[in-house]
Design a binder for these strands. Sequence first.
DNA 1: TTTAGCACTCGCATTCAAGGAGTGCTAACA
DNA 2: TGTTAGCACTCCTTGAATGCGAGTGCTAAA
Lengths: 344, 344
Amino acid sequence: MLTERQLFILQAIIDGYIQSAEPVGSRSISKRQDVNYSPATIRNDMADLEEMGYLEKPHSSSGRIPSEKGYRHYVDHLLLPHRLSSKEIENMKSLFAKDFLQVEEVVKQSATILSELTSYASIVLGPEIFESKLKQVQIIPLNNQTAVAILVTNTGHVENQTVSLPDTLDGSDLEKITNILNDKLKNVPLYQVQKKMEEEVGALLKRHIKSYKDAMFFTEETLQKSSQEKVFYGGKTNLLFQPEFRDIEKVRTIFTLLEEDDTVQELLKPEHDGLTIRIGQENDNVAFENCTIISAAYSFNGRPVGTVGIVGPTRMEYPRVIGIIDHLSKGLSNALTNLYKKGS
Amino acid sequence: MLTERQLFILQAIIDGYIQSAEPVGSRSISKRQDVNYSPATIRNDMADLEEMGYLEKPHSSSGRIPSEKGYRHYVDHLLLPHRLSSKEIENMKSLFAKDFLQVEEVVKQSATILSELTSYASIVLGPEIFESKLKQVQIIPLNNQTAVAILVTNTGHVENQTVSLPDTLDGSDLEKITNILNDKLKNVPLYQVQKKMEEEVGALLKRHIKSYKDAMFFTEETLQKSSQEKVFYGGKTNLLFQPEFRDIEKVRTIFTLLEEDDTVQELLKPEHDGLTIRIGQENDNVAFENCTIISAAYSFNGRPVGTVGIVGPTRMEYPRVIGIIDHLSKGLSNALTNLYKKGS
DNA sequence: TTTAGCACTCGCATTCAAGGAGTGCTAACA
DNA sequence: TGTTAGCACTCCTTGAATGCGAGTGCTAAA
């Protein structure tokens, strides 16, 4: 069990190291105004803390730096809740204050703001539109061979797709198709659209349209939506200013991996409600063993639909970042939910 | 005037330096199979070339590297046209072979392919939709307070915008507005929409709709489009693998500037038809004095609507990159134009 | 005009010593 | 028993000295 003083010293070392990126020595702690112990005393406790695995030494005669276990303990037990500065609050408020939320726009902006406020790299996933409901389908012919298909969901999301127009379909056919689709698919959640298509729409098309096969093929194309989650980045460049990434090799591997959507999804996956904090090896990826990734889900009508996250060095300003990301994810959820809560 | 041999040596040095990133010495050139001169002879020519400003020495006893003037001469006079490899051609072909071009999607993909093929960073601007014509306007209410406005252009571009719905407008009002807009604005180029609105639509709204002011405000919001050019990036990480960017300071300033849209626009602005190549200081930006930027406009129906570009070190594989970017910009223009050439 | 030869330059890696920050340990102190 | 002063020790950092090697410039000969 750790004594009060050991906890204090652990905290002092972590705070100091986060601030300076330099190993912290006993003397510097002893000199603090609020400390009345001699360096020797502090050294003893530091030795104990090291023995217990909370601290490390880069080499035998240097000051101490926190180990991952040290950070973990700091995050779990020592963290003082951080008051956001008014500038930070203002910044986020302005994001949600817009009158006309374009969902994707807000989500994208979140990434930018997040990286600006934290000075680390931000990643935002989503929003997942899988469960939102189809509101309307439009097919607009551009010329004899091409048309644009537009899907609108109840969350205001617009998905559009250029499709090739078979010769066999004329204007009245298109109108029929559009009517059938709107009739049968309105208010159907996107994940059910495929099924509904096969069950009900196919038969109707067969009955009403001569070149049934073309129509069917065309309709399927029309409804094919990009179901993959979108990934937005902000401030990757910030990482280059962190002293732990002075080594270009590390930056390379990290940047390369951050371009792979799968990896990013994996890294950000939240483990539970609220914040997920993965420190160093907890990320399960050698390239990120010097990184901490903090993520939080945001939701729409109580269902999680995406994730916001921050990537930075393990020597991260935990209190501040945690405050910001917590505030932002909640604000995002509220904004989305409030705006469309009356949506049918 | 340069002798044949001097030209040959200049070319050999540039080729060698592009390949190895190391200063090239007289001995290594002399040892080439196709060279029958002694190192001393070559040294004499090298000294002349240096005097004329085509070469530089990092320090007094090293091999030579090309100066900017050297690169410029190489690009203008020595460059052998490069045959694209079949892999490169295949790669680009597959990009344009898609049946259903989603313009923005293709443009975005171009950035990715460009960076993959060249191993440098790619930037793609546009496509500018300023001159394309409005095809259809749709207003789809989501709930009592919100609606989605959708604009479709003759190029298949879809612009959508969430707008707040004034209480005073009911469903039939929306329908009227939509009809008026489609009636008056169909086939109007986007850059004229604003003017047309003021001249014709305002009066009509006034005549037909009770709460005219709300309607007017609502309509203006609806048509407000994001006129800014989009910027797509590809493979910025590639730059980290170039030896000239081993110094993290340089990378930082470059990456920071590449996040500023204005700067990027400035850097990529093509000077004339065909390729624009800016070497080092020609970029007029200290941060890019070690960079070469090659850009080319792509067009739609003969009008330039965007730019594709590559950012790399001045020590760039000019022949290959020039071949690729030339092919790609032309391919992109063709693809866009062919697809919609029948568009009204 | 070209080439061989040679002295010279400069960067780079290695070595070594001095300096300093910080530790661990021991013994004394409260 | 917990705390502190003192001191030897470790190891990193810095800077100067050194040798090596790649490459040059110049001169004189072919």
